[in-house]
């Protein structure tokens, strides 16, 4: 019997500690003998009517509160899902050659050449080299023009540097 009675010295020390612990447990962790049955939390969802680009519609549940969602770009007008569709292929219609003429006159140098050759530019390396030369011409020409007009030399230097950087990248 005497063994079960705790000594007077130990009990006052132990008691307060255990009480504080249990208080902590209530707030933070689960006690083993009582599992909290949590109510499942679900975000509120609205019913939304989706209108695809071809006019077909369907209803789905979303968290978005907008009732009608119109999409401009979706599965119905995407080339990846319709690989054989001529309408979706991004081919330039240039029957009269007006676009080509415009590009020759105002377009960038490398574009005009590619169109003039009417070839696949990716094929050979020589063409790429040609393009780079033409680019270089453009840049150097730009610098000379500035010099001819009697502007500061620093500007020209900067332009040349940027041109070299581009070359390095390619």
């Amino acid at each position: 019997m005497s063994r079960h009675i705790p000594s007077a010295t130990s009990s006052p020390l132990k008691r307060p500690i255990s009480v504080s612990r249990s208080c902590k447990l209530v707030h933070h962790t689960q006690v083993r003998h009582a599992t909290l049955l949590k109510r499942p939390k679900r975000p509120y969802t609205f019913t939304q009517l989706v209108t695809l680009s071809d006019g077909s519609t369907f209803i789905h549940r979303t968290t978005s509160p907008i009732s009608v969602c119109k999409s401009a770009k979706d599965i119905r007008n995407s080339a990846l899902w319709h690989p054989s569709s001529q309408k979706l292929l991004n081919v330039e219609e240039d029957e009269a050659g007006r676009l080509r003429a415009f590009r020759e006159r105002f377009g960038r140098g490398w574009d005009a050449e590619a169109v003039a050759e009417n070839e696949d530019v990716r094929e050979g390396e020589e063409k790429v080299a040609d393009r780079d030369e033409s680019l270089l011409d453009l840049i150097s020409g730009f610098g000379q023009e500035a010099e001819a007009q009697g502007q500061a030399k620093g500007v020209r230097k900067a332009a040349q540097k940027s041109g070299k950087g581009k070359m390095g990248e390619k």
């Binding site: 695809l52 979706d74 599965i75």
Partner: peptide, 8 residues
């Protein structure tokens, strides 16, 4: 939603 609207 992914297939119809997002991925394209």
């Amino acid at each position: 939603k992914c297939v119809d609207m997002v991925l394209p």
